[in-house]
Design a protein around this nucleic acid. Structure first.
Lengths: 187, 187
DNA sequence: AGCTAAAAGCTAATGTCATTAGCCAGGGTT
DNA sequence: AACCCTGGCTAATGACATTAGCTTTTAGCT
């Protein structure tokens, strides 16, 4: 019985990839085990169970999203940064719908929960966009929530097939960027 | 064996109420049957199964949301209509988180799917808001998608506990309304 | 090189659900 | 009064997640 050479990180990575393929709702321990060439109970040596697995996928997704948005924004400011953030965030969600869906409905247990840390990193990337606009200190939290809502809503609606008509989705994103720029500019 | 007097509508209504209480992910046929004073298999005389039940809850939620937003917007225009729509939509999602969550990830099978019809009704209510702004005909679809993304994102992030800091959520919503007003105004 | 103990797989067993099959009573219709 | 459709029930099946307990590999030590 040769070892499969698994560890928590590789199991989570495979699970995230599988979630992107089949949807997080259809991600099953049996399917993941099969993908890894292992029997189902063996997975419990690396992750605590399905809930734990979902949590770790969510953490991975937030980390990757923060990384992608942070890199995209680097070197830009104002509207350019806004556009870079919107495009890179949407690209991430569209390419990794399962991963991102795993983040929905996850409640971090505390401020030092790795999930909360990863979430903060993503928010920091959005915060960098806001710094290019003249937003009063007291409004920054509201602006951050608004921006996050807008990006999150667009990305999840698209990933979930929520846009039904024919209008081009890339054009809609560009319109959204211009809309957000106007909204942030005269704050 | 006395009859329980169930029919599809009452089963769906009870399921929606239960979903609001325990979350759509924890809505189980057994739990619903217990709530209705009936054994699990009896439910299959009224709904096709768990998937069908979810679909019908989603349809109910979209209908109710469209009704709520439509009523709230009536008689207002411009920024007032925008504020009324945002507040009523958020109130609906906060009061009925389970129902609304059931709408996520539902893919209508065709344009005459009752789910698509209910979804269109909600979009019509949002469309009424846009009529108060000077939006070029060619941009209306983009504006509608943007507005829907913004409302959807805010409501779902709040319902999912996605806002972690102390800043007041009502204030954030008011900020969001002003932001959207600016963004729509000079379109 | 050999010893040992933790780690990583495996099989078997259990429990929760969803779903289906097939039986039975009740009440309206003829 | 015989009928039959409807809605409820019990029993059985099957998919999964999870746990228990056994066995082999392998890393680290002497």
């Amino acid at each position: 019985m040769p070892r499969a050479g698994l560890d928590p990180a590789s199991v989570v990575a495979a699970a995230a990839a599988l979630a992107d393929e089949v949807g997080v709702g259809s991600l099953t321990m049996g399917l993941l085990a099969e993908r890894l060439g292992v029997r189902t109970p063996s997975l419990y040596k690396h992750v605590g169970g399905l809930d734990d697995l979902n949590r770790r996928i969510a953490e991975l997704a937030l980390d990757e999203a923060a990384e992608a948005v942070g890199l995209a924004v680097r070197g830009y400011a104002g509207r350019d940064a806004l556009a870079a953030a919107a495009r890179s965030f949407r690209a991430f969600v569209v390419e990794h719908p399962g991963r991102y869906a795993a983040t929905l409905g996850q409640e971090p247990s505390g401020p030092d929960d790795p999930l909360a840390v990863a979430g903060s990193r993503l928010l920091d990337a959005f915060m960098a966009v806001l710094r290019g606009y003249d937003i009063p200190e007291s409004d920054v939290d509201h602006a951050l929530r608004t921006l996050r809502s807008l990006f999150h809503g667009f990305a999840t609606l698209q990933a979930g097939g929520g846009f039904r008509w024919s209008a081009d989705i890339d054009e809609s994103l560009e319109w959204l960027i211009a809309f957000a720029d106007r909204g942030l500019r005269s704050a």
